[in-house]
Design a protein around this nucleic acid. Structure first.
Length: 252
DNA sequence: AACCGTATCAACCGCGTCGTG
DNA sequence: TCACGACGCGGTTGATACGGT
């Protein structure tokens, strides 16, 4: 362990102090508890180890799948990810990711050429109002010593008034899209999938159903129900990890 | 048994954010 | 508006555990 390990006596003092005075006011906790620890250490020990209902032991397959989906959505915002995994701490999730899952990502990095540039329409931006906007992005794939990163810069707002000459099975028009959504990835996130998703097409039907066709993909995508509207926006249901609503239908 | 390399994870550190005066 | 302190987060460290030789 890096640093000085906590003793059982220190744990007892901290636990009793927080049970008496409650969480928060961490700058007062060391003095109140009679601990020769800084407030940061006290807070960390409580949140990562002493707090009730902390789940110990290995992550289940369901938890791992959830982490992968949430990491795709949130990135390295470990506390946000952990808040959706009952009993797990941000430190636990971060450690698990760094020890196990990041390597799975790294193992697939060779599938994209370094410095490759691609331009695609995506649904990717998420703001605090749970709104995801459609944009056209230019991806510049850079290979560092350890991983591939995309320095994606939004270059224009999506224009769905420019249908591509592809015909859907129902006779409608297919529009090229990329859906950066959790449920698209029922396997570990990897760069190969990102590349393949460029070959995804969508068609919005009159009854509000969006048909999604996939090229060169070997996993299923659930049917997405949408409503007609004027906004080029959609929302996430963060508990169900699913789309909720309206999406660029004014363009068809 | 001893050694070595790797994996694990608790703890520390630095920095950004926020509230307050 | 600015300065300051507290909080919270993510990156990193390093001690220990573990497995292989």
């Amino acid at each position: 362990m890096g640093g000085v390990a906590w003793t059982e006596e220190e744990d007892r003092l901290l636990r009793e102090c927080i049970q008496r005075y409650g969480e928060g006011k961490w700058h007062r906790i060391p003095l109140l508890a009679g601990l020769n620890r800084c407030r940061k250490s006290c807070r960390l020990r409580w949140f990562n180890y002493l707090r009730p209902n902390i789940k110990r032991g290995s992550f289940t397959n369901e938890e791992v799948e959830h982490i992968i989906k949430l990491h795709k959505l949130y990135g390295n915002r470990w506390s946000l990810i952990a808040s959706r995994l009952p009993g797990r701490t941000a430190n636990d999730v971060k450690n698990y990711w760094n020890c196990h899952l990041s390597k799975r990502l790294l193992n697939n990095a060779h599938l994209i050429e370094p410095n490759e540039t691609t331009k695609n329409t995506t649904i990717i931006a998420q703001d605090k109002n749970n709104t995801i906007e459609c944009e056209s992005y230019e991806y510049n794939w850079k290979r560092s010593s350890e991983t591939i990163q995309n320095n994606n810069n939004p270059i224009e707002t999506i224009s769905m008034h420019d249908p591509k000459p592809n015909q859907a099975s129902n006779g409608g028009t297919l529009l090229p899209i990329e859906i950066m959504s959790p449920f698209v990835r029922d396997e570990a996130y990897n760069d190969q999938m990102v590349a393949q998703e460029y070959n995804k097409y969508a068609c919005i039907e009159e009854n509000g159903t969006m048909e999604v066709l996939q090229r060169d993909l070997d996993f299923e995508l659930e049917e997405i129900k949408i409503t007609t509207g004027e906004h080029s926006k959609c929302k996430w249901d963060f508990d169900e990890l699913a789309f909720d609503l309206e999406l660029w239908t004014n363009s068809l």
